[in-house]
Nucleic acid binder design. Structure first.
Lengths: 206, 206
DNA sequence: ATTTTTTTATTGAACGTTCAATCAATAAAA
DNA sequence: TTTTATTGATTGAACGTTCAATAAAAAAAT
């Protein structure tokens, strides 16, 4: 089997296997053997490509966060409307993107979040992403309301988004993305209603 | 030291020590030795009183959840006003109670939440508490709005509360309870504004 | 084209560490 | 003297890491 140029392939395999393992048995029991078996390779390969288990976990978290950032960026770049509502809507949509919300990614995200409380490297990654989300939201809200109100709106919506993720990760059926998006958009409409008073985008949800 | 009637004392000591240890180093590194050292007893005592480490963790989670329930109950029973807004406000206040929000309890809560994804016993406990919160919220909202809207309001507010907890557990400074309560109350006011149209209780926050 | 050499990728058994659980020994109170 | 509470060294299992051995591909030589 050994060919040249295996590195990127193996790295991706192992990252995917890590998410699958965490989805299956949780971070605590996601051992190197279980992960490597999932990827169809031996345990030693993890240290070879990632320097150790910690390196693999860090790379996995990095991927989840960059995927999330990309999902938002794609929707932002595709916007025709330049309104604050449209921008914030794109952030909401990106955060409830299919690839993010689906099983393995969501459970892994929560596991890392909890883990990052006591692992400085993971905490740093979490912080960077967190600040970007807040900063983006705040910037958009500031276009239609005063600073203090914008700050509170941004914090409220960020909490709402994370709360929906959190609850979605726990339910056995996984997150109902459609419902989550509806709730977040409705909240956004309420926040904007106090200032912009533009008519909310139509929300079709039953 | 050995006296009679040590059991309830030791149990409480160990539960507190568990939260302290998780607050310090996280669930993954909260070993029986670290916990017992925190409580000033030997490692063997954990198996003696809780049947093993898992028993201690389960008891700790139970305590956190019952404390939360009590914090809500106290405020509900102290209500003079019987309005839906007052009831829901009591739920919010209870969820951001001092003892719940302060360091150890908050970090432990999040650690257990993540852990409960793959431990049936913890998941069961989480589910019971979760359903009660949702059920209470839903019941109160139904007093002032139709069923579908009440359901969504309950889910939204539950997500908001959990999201604020989640973000509070991660920040090094701990949760800013005052700000969290303000955001939750403001959201509640917005939800009610669409139906009851009673004037919101005055929120003083700068 | 075929064989030999070199490089790259991978394995898996062995090692040292860490942990939870156990239980015989102990010590204080009843 | 009996009962209750506690200890801590020991045990066995599980884990991540390491590394000599191996196997396949690529490159070089014939």
């Amino acid at each position: 089997m050994p060919k040249v140029g295996m590195e990127p392939i193996r790295r991706q395999q192992l990252i995917n296997a890590t998410m699958a393992a965490i989805d299956e048995v949780g971070l605590a029991e996601a051992t190197v053997m279980r992960i490597s078996r999932h990827a169809g390779v031996s345990a030693g390969i993890i240290s070879h490509y990632f320097g150790g288990k910690d390196g693999l976990l860090e790379a996995t978290m990095r991927q989840i966060l960059t995927d999330l950032t990309k999902a938002v960026a794609v929707r932002r770049d595709a916007l025709e409307d330049d309104s604050a509502r449209a921008h914030i809507g794109a952030i909401i949509e990106g955060n409830f993107d299919r690839t993010q919300v689906t099983g393995p990614a969501a459970k892994t995200w929560l596991a890392f979040w909890a883990s990052s409380m006591h692992k400085p490297m993971l905490q740093r990654l979490q912080n960077v992403n967190d600040r970007r989300l807040y900063s983006n939201l705040c910037h958009q809200f500031r276009r239609v309301m005063p600073r203090t109100e914008a700050r509170n709106a941004a914090r409220g919506l960020a909490a709402m988004i994370d709360g929906l993720w959190l609850r979605g990760a726990l339910t056995t059926e996984g997150l109902n993305a459609e419902e989550a998006r509806f709730l977040a958009h409705t909240y956004l409409d309420q926040l904007l209603a106090h200032y912009g008073c533009q008519q909310p985008a139509s929300n079709t949800y039953s």
